[in-house]
């Protein structure tokens, strides 16, 4: 995997989230991910692996990712002036938007892939509602999702033309639904088969190349 060393331009805390921004030339699809590690990991090999993050936003040559500190790897990334990043990878949300109002839903605070998606839908004039399951410490993220509603459960989504979900969980039958999954990854480029996601028809897909965004009906645990 090829990594690029970049300087973190800014870091901002929004409750338990941190937004990390760094310069990036090139385009990205909503739902794609990048691998990130602290620059020091390059020579220490400890922690060994980079961490995958959904692209949060890309604007004017500045990429941002949303980070919550979970362990040593994320703590190192959160505090590093210099980080190493991969290019965006994977299949994002498909832009084949059906006519009608769509719902964007994030389970258990997994809001990151919805930010760029929501902005792109807005640019295209697609009517949408955003529902976020957030812990109390995550509520400040609402600043980046104007008009979004914080919910415990998503209620009846059957009136929507499509659902764009982040995080696993049941979706109403009969509505087109794309869902972004989070998996632990090693290579991030299809080689290691570590980020296996169970498929409805049996077997596994790789979150890094066949995903991280899947048609919900393809997956076994939706």
């Amino acid at each position: 995997m090829r990594f690029h060393r970049v300087r973190v331009e800014s870091r901002e805390r929004l409750g338990s989230y941190r937004v990390l921004r760094y310069p990036w030339e090139g385009d990205v699809e909503p739902g794609q991910f990048v691998l990130i590690r602290a620059a020091s990991q390059r020579t220490s090999f400890d922690p060994f692996l980079a961490r995958p993050f959904s692209v949060y936003d890309l604007r004017g040559g500045v990429m941002s990712v949303l980070l919550e500190v979970r362990g040593r790897g994320t703590r190192l990334i959160a505090s590093s002036e210099e980080i190493e990043v991969s290019a965006p990878h994977g299949r994002g949300y498909r832009p084949d938007v059906p006519a009608g109002r769509v719902a964007l839903i994030a389970r258990e605070g997994k809001v990151a892939p919805l930010r760029l998606l929501y902005r792109r839908l807005q640019e295209r004039g697609v009517d949408h509602d955003i529902f976020l399951q957030l812990a109390a410490a995550q509520v400040p993220i609402l600043r980046d999702f104007p008009g979004a509603r914080v919910v415990d459960d998503f209620g009846d989504l059957s009136g929507y033309a499509a659902v764009y979900a982040s995080g696993p969980g049941a979706v109403p039958p009969g509505i087109p639904c794309q869902v972004a999954v989070e998996e632990m990854m090693a290579c991030g480029e299809g080689s290691c088969y570590g980020c296996a996601v169970p498929l409805a028809g049996g077997g596994y897909a790789r979150a890094c190349v066949e995903g991280p965004v899947f048609e919900a009906r393809e997956l076994a645990w939706i």
């Binding site: 090999f45 060994f48 998996e183 632990m184 990854m185 290691c192 088969y193 570590g194 996601v197 596994y204």
Partner: peptide, 14 residues
């Protein structure tokens, strides 16, 4: 089909 997840664990330098 391979083994069910999880399939990975990180260790010191490995």
């Amino acid at each position: 089909t391979g083994n069910p997840p999880p399939r990975l664990a990180e260790t010191p330098a490995g």
